[in-house]
Design a binder for these strands. Structure first.
Lengths: 230, 230
DNA sequence: GGTTACATTCAGGAAACAGTCAGATACTGA
DNA sequence: TCAGTATCTGACTGTTTCCTGAATGTAACC
């Protein structure tokens, strides 16, 4: 099958660009619009495989858009973007059907992971929920990480960091890259936090692994070393 | 495919010239402009394969330029140039998609290497991340150097020096050349530092190689001798 | 052979970098 | 409401890297 087509609907140009760039690089066929009306006509014209939809739009809210699309017969799944402090009733019913939602501000890799998870369920699953890298295996559906047949319990941030490392094995990732991909896009703290979390991860992983898993490349960043299979 | 087209955007004429000359010599098709407005029209007219963009421009900052280009639908990757002491929020989000950044002052070979790394990932990878020269092989993604099946651990500067030597095998490189390519362009110390680093490199390499790898051409410079494969 | 210029190596100090920890704050779920 | 987590910051410590300068070694030249 061809690259999945994704429509992004958000009125903030920054976020639109960020998502567009990021999803394009992840191999999606991306189009982006800035309001509800444009979204509807874009959906009718392009028939995307998935819609990333901000629930707070200038002209109409995301639910009206959804309702209009559904009644027009469009069944493509929707990933809603909501504000973190949205009231409960606003996020009610957002995960029915194939739909899901993430709160703003989000981390880029989280968005990509969620989109892939949705597509895995709705389109025929050509991609796996299981990531492997050497002794580590990670199930993205159950959030279960296993090293050497031992389950390792990770916090959410530790999980995302490890996933990013596992998706880019045998490549040096700089702290800036890690921050950009794993942390929320508005994070404005020091890169030292990456060091802290690498330290946490190492403590948990190396307790059950046969060898140190995360390598430090001084002056460049970190790397997950994996014996290549191919 | 033809030589990749690169657009350089920097207001300092010195740096512009330095980059232009250097990238042309590396086989790129280079064009250079000095401000954001010119950058935008140049991109629209020429559609370069990659943009080298200083984030600090006189008329508009690099982010506005990026935003304008992205909204106009241009997806070419960008290599940002930032000042070393830029605040955290200035360098946030610079490694998203195929983009990357280097800090000023940079070394010329570092820029070329980063550009090639980006193009390797965004265009179809016709070029390899692996450099070979005789017994030595260097993986630019993992930063791993192997001599005679033994991994050699190098510091960042040692790594860059060896890469420069490996990219120019069987050619005498003067200390001035090495300084110009491997060290940051504002370095104004003694050329003796090259001697020091050659010494470091030899100690590490010759410990595992079958024969001395770096030859001294007294009065001229150094050379990496390699049995030609062709 | 002796002199000179050039190379190599070593030692040392400053700065940059990385790892870890304790504590403040925020968040979550009972 | 409260306890238990999770997140993040800042401090502290130790290590590595970089560069300089001086001492030693070596090739080239007269």
């Amino acid at each position: 099958m061809e690259n999945p087509r994704i429509l992004i609907v958000d009125d903030e140009p920054n976020i639109r660009d960020l998502l567009t760039t990021s999803l394009r690089f992840s191999g999606f066929n991306v189009q982006a619009v800035g309001n509800g009306a444009a979204a509807i006509s874009a959906v009718l014209a392009e028939e995307p495989d998935l819609i990333v939809l901000d629930v707070m739009l200038p002209d109409m809210n995301g639910f009206s858009v959804t309702k209009r699309l559904r009644s027009a017969g469009y069944t493509a799944p929707i990933l809603f973007l909501t504000a973190k402090d949205d009231t409960q009733d606003k996020i009610m019913g957002l995960t029915v059907g194939g739909d899901d939602y993430v709160t703003k501000p989000f981390s880029l890799d989280e968005i990509v992971a969620r989109i892939k998870a949705i597509l895995r369920r709705t389109m025929q699953a050509d991609e796996e929920a299981l990531i492997r890298a050497g002794e580590i295996s990670m199930d993205q559906d159950t959030h279960e990480v296993v090293v050497n047949d031992t389950v390792v319990d990770l916090s959410p941030t530790e999980f995302k960091l490890l996933r990013y490392l596992m998706l880019n094995p045998n490549r040096v990732l700089s702290k800036a890259q890690i921050l950009d991909h794993v942390w929320e896009y508005d994070f404005n703290g020091d890169a030292g936090i990456v060091e802290s979390y690498v330290s946490y991860l190492r403590r948990k992983l190396d307790a059950v692994s046969t060898e140190p898993l995360i390598t430090t490349k001084r002056g460049f960043g970190y790397m997950l070393k994996v014996a290549k299979a191919s």
